[in-house]
Amino acid sequence: MAKSPLSAVHDDHGGHHIHNNSMYVKTALTLAGFMILTIAAAQIDFGHMISKQYGYWINNLIAVLIAVVKTYIVVLYFMHVKWASSLGKLFALLGFFFIPVLFSVWTDFYFRQHEPVAHWYNNDYVESATPRIIGATDGAKIAPGEENTQNRIPKSVW
């Protein structure tokens, strides 16, 4: 498409450039590279090389970090935020800025385990060796609205 006479011309108004196709190709290739990296990183157990207990968090961290970088690239290049006005940049950031605010809910679930009150939050971190015996798998689940309130949790067997 470089043969188009307009391809190198900068549009004056609003600061919107018309970019070379190569920019889009490079961006897409980078993203594809990161995609392969994510899959590859998931095959390798980084964490347990470092810590036997909580090592898998390293893998999680890597996966999320790669996703963040990919997002960053998409937002900057495909969504043209790199060339946007400061107002556009502000609003592009706003949502991503507020995600941490939303995630502050985590503090509650983190702190609960340090309470004098019995806690809910725990990592279940076990070796699953034998199949679990299923006493009552939810066959008898009561649909909302079908039956009200009584015996949601089965009574004792005695």
């Binding site: 507020f98 605010v101 503090t107 509650d108 679930f109 983190y110 702190f111 609960r112 340090h114």
Partner: peptide, 21 residues
């Protein structure tokens, strides 16, 4: 206003440290 929602949940068994914040 976005940082204070937990004051509706002081007795909802949310973490007490969070409640203090």
């Amino acid at each position: 206003g976005f940082l204070v929602w937990g004051h509706h949940m002081f007795v909802s068994s949310q973490s007490m440290y969070q409640s203090v914040i």
